[in-house]
Design a protein around this nucleic acid. Structure first.
Lengths: 247, 247
DNA sequence: GGTTGACCCTGACCCTGCGTCAGGGTTGGA
DNA sequence: TCCAACCCTGACGCAGGGTCAGGGTCAACC
């Protein structure tokens, strides 16, 4: 007769593991001696080794009991099944590795290299780091919520930086971050931006992620909040007027 | 401002996931509205998406917070580390697959083909299925506890089946399973077995696993128990006598 | 016969990353 | 006013054990 630690040593597992198998019903509880110690037969050693053989092959404990009593055909089917499951997990981890490899540094964390290039171009143009982070976050949201517009936006953004007027407005906005919301320079800036939107046929309507973007911009600075609100208001008035005329 | 389900939908996770991240401190709890509902800023959406980008690449949640605030060098180091961990898991699962593939059917579950061949040879010789199972279990124990003697035992076993006297004794033992322990035929059998052990220079001493084997044999039948006990007793007497003579 | 160290027992919490109740309160539209 | 669809907290469950905590037992040695 064996004690629990002898049994465990025989199968190369811990005492805790044996008790765990009793707990989940994978092995029956053996007889106890006078002082309540478990006493195992040699049969138990054989059973435990067979269980471990399966467990060491990655078979989940819940499936082992059925497998030990299965006919060859069922057994083969179950093995095939478990193998497929293992393969699935391997594929999952392999995909993880692929993604991890792409997370090289910093902003590459989420964004494609074209966008990283845009952010670096902004830094070169003297845009504040705060504004660059906001821009980065806008791209993150865009990628999460509306990824198919990314190439288009990337082209537009680069074109904007190539156009002197657009660039001037962009940098002016950047400067205005800590202006007082009632600063008269803001009125001029808003007029210019509104004109820019009309010229570029932006109607100020915002699909999904853009609401989050402008929400973030408003959160960042009172001056910017005023700009966003004013532009939205004007665009809204234009749409209303447009409907009147076409009615 | 976003509700929790809007935030979750934005990042493509469940509401439960967001609450879980609050619980473990990965995301700070946001403001609550008058009725106690969580209210999220657009910033929270960005943060959650960045978290999920890492989580979707297999980064454990506990490590994400540090990673989000890491410098590029630390970040790269951590990524390398996590990648190694993923590779380790993949290797583990791949080894599982290899083992699973070897678990073709029934006795192949644990035993090398030579042993399976021995078991089949026993069946062909007319040995009872009970005895075959006992034999199989003996090999299982041997493989677990003393694997390096396997080739030797396999040769001995096959040699035994090639020898008519050994084979006769083997089959006689098999027959005796349900004899009464006081059956006079047992006395003769024990004499023959003892003689066989002397001739083959077996001294009846038992290393590790053999104790378990004979323990299992004894458990299986009272007649066998008597055989095991009698042989052990005689071998013991011989050893004592041997020591006396050599003293 | 007392001590010491190695065992044994049960019960319970810990890890991961959430899913899934249970048992409520809130909101917004028909 | 009612109903569906939200929201809240709290708790258990999963796989496979690890790791205390707080005790009892056994064997050997002094």
């Amino acid at each position: 007769m064996l004690t629990i630690s002898q049994l465990a040593a025989t199968a190369g597992v811990t005492v805790r593991t044996v008790r765990h198998y009793h707990h989940i019903g994978l092995m029956p509880e053996p007889e106890r001696d006078a002082s309540g110690y478990r006493r195992y037969s040699a049969q138990a050693a054989v059973d435990l080794i067979r269980i471990r053989t399966l467990a060491d092959a990655g078979v989940p404990l819940v499936r082992i009991d059925a497998l030990l009593h299965a006919q060859p055909a069922e057994f083969a089917a179950a093995i095939t099944d478990i193998d497929a499951e293992l393969q699935r997990k391997i594929d999952q981890l392999t995909e993880y590795r692929g993604r991890i490899a792409e997370l090289a540094v910093g902003e590459r964390l989420v964004l494609p290299p074209e966008v990283v290039a845009i952010l670096n171009r902004m830094r070169d143009l003297g845009v504040s780091e705060q504004r660059v982070r906001l821009e980065r976050d806008s791209w993150i949201l865009m990628q999460a919520l509306d990824p198919h517009v990314m190439p288009q936006r990337i082209r537009e953004k680069n074109a904007g930086f190539d156009d002197p007027e657009t660039l001037r407005l962009y940098l002016a906005c950047d400067q205005s971050v800590d202006w007082n919301p009632h600063d008269p320079r803001l009125d001029q800036l808003i007029d210019d931006l509104d004109a820019w939107e009309i010229e570029h046929e932006r109607d100020g309507s915002q699909p999904g992620y853009l609401k989050l973007v402008s929400s973030r911009i408003s959160e960042a600075s009172p001056a910017w909040q005023r700009i966003v609100d004013a532009l939205a208001h004007r665009a809204d008035r234009r749409r209303t007027a447009g409907r009147k005329r076409t009615r």
